[in-house]
Design a protein around this nucleic acid. Structure first.
Lengths: 204, 204
DNA sequence: GCGCATACCAGACTTTTGTCTGGTATGCAA
DNA sequence: TTGCATACCAGACAAAAGTCTGGTATGCGC
């Protein structure tokens, strides 16, 4: 009679650890192979790792692409995607700005909307809690409702303001008494998108 | 003489498309295999895809794990993880609050630090651009530097304030003239962590 | 012309990886 | 006891995926 590595492990305990391991690896962008799971837990047989993984799939905690390498994934996509972080946007160049972006930030998003991040310059929106250096997350859309905070291209530079739709014109309101409301002509103003989130990183 | 699929392609053009394809796939959590790149671009030879990938590595636009399947990655790892979002924290119950959290939010973090999100209540930090309903991302730590914005447990409720270390005492400063500075006794105040990020979701 | 670059193709080899068949040990409940 | 669950092991096979050698076509500068 041979001595087994684990005399007894409570049901589900190892499986839970396997789940957390796989989950972490997936969120780190490289799902593990079956054998990587095996090695991480020092199983002597591939099948042991495979069994745990298959049960996690059966339980609905994971999903998998059959036969594909590193095919285990998280079920309902957490809906995270990385969007480009832009330094500034100048006339016409949203596409160009996305090409030469500073980096990527994770955002939660439903669907495959076109979203980007933009670093805030200037103090015109401090009254709305948007400070210089903050990052606004913008969903691209050409239309917006009165009262929305939008990113608009006025002249040859993008600006962040609160949109007000009047009877015959649009107004871009700052949220800082030191700045004046902008009343652009329709042909010199383009709404690039709506601000859906504001972020401030206090270190790093 | 046989007819080639592509009579001539400008240098770097296809490579750029390959880069964008790979990047998208990586951000979607499943890096492509060499053959998947081949198929996506309808190359007739695996080697063509491989050559583009290897050059992207040589250019520093990608990195790879040699010999591993789906081994191509983006250079500096973004490293995202999900942290619990807490509604409020009351005396002693950080652990308990994490158990019954409202949900999870993605944050960028280096390492496996203990991080949580906390929804802001009250207007005491509006001067620092932290408004009611905002979410602060907090890194758990018992110590903090003077000037840091911290989450502290004073009495039986957690509060967000700017920390000032004086000679003989600590002070918790609001950033709103309508609120008073708190000077707690050392034994009735615990620093739960430091605010490293502020977020505001403007819809949903 | 020549050499050299890029872009691409053909077919093969080797390693990695997913999958499978059959086995042992332990606890639990009928 | 039997049956059945879980947890784990051994060794193999086959598909997937990384790697390699050697080739053709086109453009560019000498």
């Amino acid at each position: 009679m041979r001595i087994l590595m684990t005399p007894f492990t409570p049901p589900g305990e190892t499986r839970d650890k396997v789940y957390r391991f796989v989950r972490r690896r997936i969120l780190e962008e490289l799902p593990p192979t079956v054998r990587e799971v095996q090695e991480a837990f020092r199983f002597r047989a591939v099948q042991t790792a495979r069994q745990h993984l298959e049960r996690l799939v059966a339980e609905g905690r994971l999903v998998k692409a059959h036969g594909k390498s590193r095919g285990y994934r998280l079920p309902r996509e957490p809906g995270t995607l990385f969007v480009p972080l832009l330094g500034r946007v100048q006339a016409g160049g949203l596409r160009a700005a996305i090409e030469e972006c500073e980096g990527y930030i994770p955002v939660q998003s439903r669907g495959s909307e076109e979203v980007f991040g933009l670093r805030v310059q200037g103090e015109s929106m401090t009254g709305a809690g948007i400070l210089p250096g903050d990052i606004v997350v913008v969903r691209q859309q050409a239309e917006a409702a009165s009262g929305d905070i939008v990113v608009a291209l006025v002249g040859d530079e993008a600006t962040i303001k609160r949109l007000r739709l009047r009877r015959s014109r649009i107004e871009l309101h700052p949220e800082n008494p030191a700045f004046a409301t902008i009343v652009p002509r329709a042909d010199e103003c383009t709404v690039l998108g709506k601000v859906v989130e504001v972020r401030r990183y206090l270190e790093g």
